[in-house]
Design a protein around this nucleic acid. Structure first.
Length: 550
DNA sequence: GTTGCGTTGCGACG
DNA sequence: CGTCGCAACGCAAC
């Protein structure tokens, strides 16, 4: 589609055009790349490339969505793009949407369009590191200036790593010390942009509108509940302003004190998806929080305060950037080598919300339907899957979160799975969240469970966290027979958690003895040892035992 | 080598 | 609601 003449630049031949490449950073406010692209340019091409792998339906995925993302996050992204387009239009521009492999599309655009400057936000994720290198090399060789500022995080991860002698800090406290105050802490950020130069001639490129889910090929889903969180900068800023209204709450926020079972009004800001896509600038958020603190009698501090949460985000970005194979166990220097089991049945039960533990299953339903759940709820299910009960590999759980969360962020998601599985950062594997009592402590009546698992809605509160203990008469009356209408628990928490602790202890001992250089064979030996331990507890029939030995 | 500390465990007790 | 014992990890500072 050709653009209307009014949006093309008549002085193209003699002009200096800029290409503003949006990826994350889907915002107008505090966007240094966009600002630089606009300054002194006769035309600006604001571009977003739709990568079919990320956006188009994959019928083989375990949930509705593409190969890489669940439908809730795709929807959030489309809403963010539509909002960005509408904001750009108010400034005399528009969003140019193209489809294809992003690197190839970019290079075609650089070739065809009048571009002297290529501007995009710097990104530390491995995917973008590889992609950007390719694009940067091409642009430089073509004599195009590349401007790629750090504006997604408070600090430049590379600076922190350099300050620490080339290694990323591995504790939050050491990160805080290195980081200090950000340089821009008390200087004004560019929050308003009054206009953007018009879009230049797009030649033969086929420019699309921001597509709808339907246009991407998604049929109307049977899902009865979608994420209640709408994407976009406007919505992110609205949510921020709404949060900031309650100054008392903002000033005294303490993360661990939040209620994971609160879903009508979540106990946290739910700004994470906006930060993830850069609909909200973390730096602007930081400055708003400092403003509130300045005028408050007292306020909380990192790590538990709201500013502390932004610093956690930077902490994980920094460690992730400075750690090769951060998203894997093998080849990851900071990750304990643990012989996780490979039980796809247990994984599926967890993923499909049929572990038989209502607290765990309700959280997994909320994840599926909303793409968001409270931080402590994430802890509960992550601990349960890995070191707490099922002893399934954290990478498997990470994959499920990465797909389904609307706020899933490569560095933070991997960092938290390393944390919760006691593979890195946190090592007190005795501290296990109980799938029964942890939720009950916040929500004794089980309202959260009743909402997300309506099959259990008439189970009396005495049994709602462990319905398999309810007498059959109670189950009948509640129209929910355990084992028929709702599953029996996949494990006994008491014995499973005890086993997990023992396994973690033995795995830790091997890691210590070999100073982290644990081989494939060492892991196999541990697995064999664990299997023998299992047999002692529950002797298998001789036939089966023979089979195991062979 | 020792000590103190670490965003968010559980259960008992007051 | 807070404190304690439980059992006990690795990292960082000394």
């Amino acid at each position: 589609m050709k653009l209307p003449l009014s949006l093309t630049n008549p002085n193209m031949a003699s002009g200096s055009g800029s290409l503003m490449w949006f990826r994350k950073g889907l915002r107008i406010h505090d966007n240094p790349a966009l600002e630089y692209a606009s300054r002194g340019s006769t035309c600006v091409y604001p571009l977003f490339v739709i990568d079919p792998h990320y956006m188009e339906p994959d019928p083989n995925a375990f949930s509705p969505g593409s190969t890489r993302a669940g439908i809730n996050r795709i929807r959030f992204l489309l809403e963010s793009l539509a909002d960005l387009d509408s904001s750009l239009k108010k400034l005399g521009s528009r969003l140019l949407v193209l489809k294809g492999e992003p690197g190839e599309v970019l290079i075609r655009c650089l070739n065809e369009w009048d571009v002297k400057k290529l501007c995009f936000e710097y990104d530390t994720d491995p995917y973008y590191q590889a992609l950007d290198k390719k694009v940067k090399n091409y642009a430089s060789a073509a004599g195009i200036e590349v401007f790629s500022p750090v504006s997604h995080t408070l600090f430049n991860p590379a600076d922190i790593i350099e300050k620490n002698g080339g290694r990323p800090p591995l504790t939050y406290q050491s990160f805080l010390k290195l980081a200090g105050e950000p340089l821009w802490a008390s200087s004004p950020l560019s929050v308003e942009l009054s206009s953007i130069p018009p879009v230049g001639d797009v030649g033969s490129c086929e420019i699309l509108q921001v597509p709808t889910l339907k246009e991407l090929g998604y049929v109307e889903e049977y899902q009865d509940e979608f994420t209640p969180f709408r994407g976009g900068e406007s919505e992110g800023l609205r949510r921020l302003r709404e949060t900031l209204c309650d100054k008392e709450w903002v000033a005294n926020f303490e993360k661990p004190k939040g209620d994971p079972s609160a879903y009508i009004k979540p106990a946290t800001t739910v700004l994470s998806p906006y930060l993830k896509f850069g609909c909200l600038s973390s730096r602007y958020f930081y400055q708003c929080l400092q403003d509130v603190y300045k005028n408050a009698k007292r306020h909380s501090s990192p790590p538990v305060s709201l500013v502390g949460q932004l610093l956690w985000r930077d902490f994980f970005y920094t460690v992730a950037f400075g750690t090769p194979n951060f998203d894997k166990m093998k080849g990851n220097k900071i990750c304990k080598q643990i012989p996780w089991n490979d039980d796809d049945k247990l994984l599926a039960a967890w993923r499909e919300a049929r572990t038989g533990f209502p607290w765990i299953d309700a959280i997994m339903v909320q994840l599926r339907k909303w793409g968001w759940m409270h931080h402590l709820a994430r802890h509960s299910v992550a601990c349960f899957l890995t070191r707490g009960d099922l002893f399934v590999h954290w990478e498997k759980g990470r994959d499920v979160f990465e797909r389904l969360l609307i706020d899933s962020d490569w560095a933070i998601n991997n960092g938290n799975w390393l944390w919760l599985s006691c593979s890195s950062f946190f090592y007190q594997y005795n501290r296990i969240y109980s799938p029964i009592s942890f939720g009950r402590k916040y929500d004794p009546n089980g309202n959260y469970i009743r909402h997300f698992l309506p099959i259990l809605k008439d189970i009396p509160k005495e049994y709602i966290y462990e319905p398999w203990t309810a007498p059959l008469s109670v189950q009948t009356k509640a129209k929910c027979i355990i084992g028929r209408d709702y599953p029996k628990p996949v494990v006994s928490h008491e014995t499973a958690s005890k086993e997990c602790k023992k396994k973690m202890g033995e795995a830790y001992a091997v890691n210590q003895r070999l100073n982290g250089a644990v081989s494939e064979e060492d892991l196999r030996n541990l697995r064999r040892k664990f299997a023998e331990g299992d047999e002692e507890q529950q002797p298998k029939p001789r036939r089966l035992r023979q089979k195991l030995i062979n």
